[in-house]
Structures are given as structure tokens and as C-alpha cells.
Nucleic acid binder design. Structure first.
Length: 399
RNA sequence: GUGGGUGUAGCUCAGUUGGCAGAGCGCUAGGUUGUGGUCCUGGAUGUCGAGGGUUCGAGCCCCUUCACUCACC
């Protein structure tokens, strides 16, 4: 059974890793969030999230490592790219390798040899993106494995339980994600279920002793008033942090900005705010300006494997014939391992030949670009020049 | 030398009773937003080995020829 071994919380409770009192252990796993600088020109801000596995400087971009690996790169390479926190995925890790392996191996951190913070997505988005295999019920989501077709049930409680086994520093509530377009009625249903499930997951988390941290997720589709309701309901539940979900699901970019801009101020300002699944470099700059603290997206890593590389002046497709004889680095401004050591011509050759090194070098570059962009934003906010930074960011892309 | 087979896009090959020259791969250019290293979309590319004949019309039928290939001498 894929779910075997998940019921180990009680065991953890009486056997803390440090052998110390249970409450000390719990306190250690609670995050704190300190706002360092608030921009005077926008809602942008810098902050510091402190977790049991270290500090996260915000605004932050979190590389996605669905299956316990950020595809194509090692943890050493991730660290060299300045990754501070990565994502894992509850749905995928639950199906494979499963909770038995995870608990036996001491959780995801030790399993994958990553000692910095991990955030895990609850699986809500997978039920949306793999909708053919999922049935949404009041109780939770019943679904068939995309791997072997076996049947499973995720409840809000079980999602927290599995994420606890993974040892996630930041767990996400099980949510109900809608695509675009969606009717008001559909968005309302998703909102209601998401709030109900957030409360159930939160109650379970508290009953089990508040190990690690659980974030609530705002839904409400593209309806501002529903987003307000969702934000208020979740705010009342007093989570350690909040996510805005259900964005970048096919809507126009302007609409995504509108929804984020509307929602962020309605969440507790002293808590970290996370827009899920976003986005492009432009999205990151715009949303950080609205006060968003955390982002994740598959874009830098997936697109790297498909040959699309990000530079200060825009994206380029490394497979283009124009790079056949190009001895220059990908991005003259970039300090990543790839740009310091290899030419565009070589990267094109590797990619066209489907050499494994292409995936690795391209991923290193794209992650470095995204993480460096966040560092530049943090510096600009701290120095009170976020708007100037933003203008320069767009100016470079016009060239 | 004799007999058979094959010649169609860069490659591997479809192509019906003769009726607008095709596919896959490759090439080329896009796309990808809480990841199935996937996938999707668009574009370019032909002296149908060569020459002749029959026919309103030939990649297809007939003749000649060339190349490659197999078998036997």
C-alpha cells in the first residue's frame, strides 16, 4: 500500500530527534517572519523567514523539486545558484516513493541530502491539472494514481499528515483549484471547500502538536469580492503564512495582477505571502512590487530542459541556428557556472544532441538567473530604489 | 556475362484502377506559470535516377539508358 507508514506522528511525538522536550521541539519548528525594509515607493518589502532548517530572505523564488530533486541538478549546484528553499510535492512523493520510504529514511531533507528549508505543495493543484483522474467530494479528493491507476483518498487531514512525514518546513493546506475561465458559482464552490479544508487541516495540525508550519491558500477565481471573502476567512484562522492560489491558470496576465493586487492587502501584513506557481521574471518583479514575499514556478527548470534560457535582455532559444558559431556566453552579465565556462555554440550543440549535460547547464543558468533577480530586488528594496530597479529591468528588455 | 530487385524531401520509406507529390525522423521557428526530461503548434525542402514514347493527363503504363544491390556464372 502506498499509504502505509503514514501514521507515525504519535511516534514522533514521544521521540523528538533531539531527545528534548516535545514543546521545545515544536517551538524550534515554528517559523518567524521579520520585515526588514518596507519600500516607500510601492508595497514591496524585504523580510526574513527563520525556520528550523535556516533563514529565507524574502522576496524569494523557490525552485520546484517535485519528486525530491530539482530536475537535472545536485543540491551542491542548487546551493551554488543561491537557492534558499525548494519545493517538494505531496501528491507525487506520496505515490512514489511513498510514506514508508519517507518515514524510514527520516523525511525528505535527509532523503535528498538538502539541509535547507523545504516547502511542500499539498497536491491540490495536481488534482486540478490531472482532473481526469480526480473526483472532488466534501470529504476530500479521491483519485487514481497516474502511475499505476490505484485508488487513493486525500483529505485535508491526510495532506497535513503526509507533509509531516515528509518533514516539510512549510506545509500547504489541501485546496480546491479552479481553471480559467470559471463561473462565479464554480469559484464560490472552490472557495468554500478551500476554507473548510483549510480549517480542517489546521485543526488536525494543532491536534498533532503544531509541528512545522501550515499555510492557508486563498481561492476565489477571478472575482475580487470572492478573493476578499477567502482572505478574510483564512486570516481569521491565523496561519503562519498565506498563499494566493488559483492564479496563472490561463487568465490574462493583467487579470492575474489585478487579483494579486487586490488580495495581498487583505491578508495579515505581518505574515509571509506566497503567490503559487508564478511566474515569469516580469511577473516576479510586478508581484514583488505588490508585497508578495514568496514565489515558485517550474518555468526556469522546465524551460531550461526545453532550451529556453533567460537573460537580462529577454529569453532566447538555445537551439536557434543563429548560435551555431557564437563563442560568447549565454548572458554576458551572468556569473553562473554555465556562463563562466561555456559558449552559446557549445550549449546549442549539447541541446541539439540531447546530451544530458545540456539539461544540467541550462537548469543551472536559469535558476541562477531567477534567484539572482530576486537578490537584486531585495538589494533595491533595502536601498530604497525599487522603482528605479524596475525601470532598469524593463529598459534592458527593450533592447 | 545472365537473371531478379531497388531508385520519390537531408535520412528511412508510403504513394490505390493513371487524376493537385505524402508521412515519420531530421532541419527551422514559436509555445510551455503550485513539473510526466513530456508535449503542442507553425514553416521550409522535390528535375519522382536520366532520356524518349503512349495519354486530355504519367511517380504509376511502354522502350532505352544509368546507378546501386542480390543470386548464379
Amino acid at each position: 500500500m502506498a499509504g502505509a507508514g503514514c501514521l507515525i506522528l504519535a511516534a514522533i511525538k514521544f521521540e523528538s530527534p533531539r531527545g528534548s522536550a516535545w514543546w521545545d521541539y515544536i517551538k524550534e519548528t515554528m517559523l518567524t517572519f521579520d520585515i526588514i525594509n518596507q519600500s516607500q515607493e510601492s508595497r514591496a518589502r524585504t523580510g526574513r523567514i527563520t525556520t528550523a532548517h535556516g533563514v529565507i530572505e524574502t522576496p524569494i523564488f523557490m525552485p520546484v523539486g517535485t519528486l525530491g530533486t530539482v530536475k537535472a541538478v545536485s543540491v551542491e549546484e542548487l546551493k551554488a545558484c543561491q537557492a534558499q528553499i525548494i519545493l517538494g510535492n505531496t501528491y507525487h512523493l506520496y505515490l512514489r516513493p511513498g510514506c514508508e520510504v519517507m518515514s524510514h529514511m527520516g523525511g525528505l531533507h535527509s532523503f535528498m541530502n538538502w539541509d535547507r528549508p523545504i516547502l511542500t505543495d499539498s497536491g491540490g493543484f495536481q488534482f486540478f491539472s490531472l482532473a481526469k483522474l480526480a473526483k472532488f467530494k466534501d470529504e476530500g479528493v479521491s483519485f487514481q494514481s497516474h502511475i499505476d491507476g490505484s485508488r487513493h483518498l486525500f483529505t485535508p487531514e491526510r495532506a497535513v499528515e503526509i507533509q509531516t512525514v515528509l518533514g516539510s518546513d512549510i506545509m500547504m493546506s489541501l485546496d480546491w483549484c479552479m481553471g480559467y475561465p470559471a463561473t462565479r458559482k464554480e469559484a464560490m464552490t472552490a472557495l468554500e471547500k478551500t476554507t473548510l479544508w483549510a480549517e480542517r487541516g489546521r485543526n488536525f495540525w494543532i491536534e498533532q502538536g503544531r509541528v512545522n508550519n501550515l499555510f492557508g491558500i486563498v481561492q476565489g477565481g477571478m472575482f475580487a469580492d470572492l478573493r476578499s471573502i477567502s482572505a478574510r476567512q483564512l486570516g481569521d484562522l491565523d496561519f503562519p503564512g498565506y498563499a494566493i492560489g488559483g492564479l496563472s491558470v490561463g487568465e490574462p496576465t493583467e487579470l492575474m495582477y489585478e487579483m494579486a493586487d487586490h488580495t495581498v492587502p487583505q491578508l495579515p501584513s505581518e505574515k509571509p505571502k506566497y503567490v503559487m506557481g508564478v511566474g515569469t521574471p516580469e511577473n516576479l518583479v510586478e508581484l514583488a512590487g505588490m508585497g508578495v514575499d514568496m514565489f515558485d514556478c517550474v518555468m526556469p527548470s522546465r524551460n531550461a530542459r526545453n532550451g529556453q534560457l533567460f537573460t537580462a535582455t529577454g529569453t532566447l532559444n538555445i537551439s536557434n541556428a543563429a548560435f551555431r558559431l557564437d563563442a560568447s556566453p549565454l548572458d554576458a552579465e551572468c556569473t553562473c557556472y554555465t556562463c563562466q565556462n561555456y559558449s552559446r555554440a557549445y550549449l546549442r550543440h549539447l541541446y541539439k544532441s540531447r546530451e544530458l549535460l545540456a539539461y544540467r547547464l541550462n537548469t543551472i543558468h536559469n535558476l541562477h538567473y531567477f534567484l539572482d533577480l530576486m537578490q537584486q530586488m531585495r538589494n533595491a528594496i533595502n536601498q530604497g530604489r525599487f522603482m528605479a530597479f524596475k525601470q532598469e529591468f524593463y529598459r534592458k528588455r527593450e533592447r
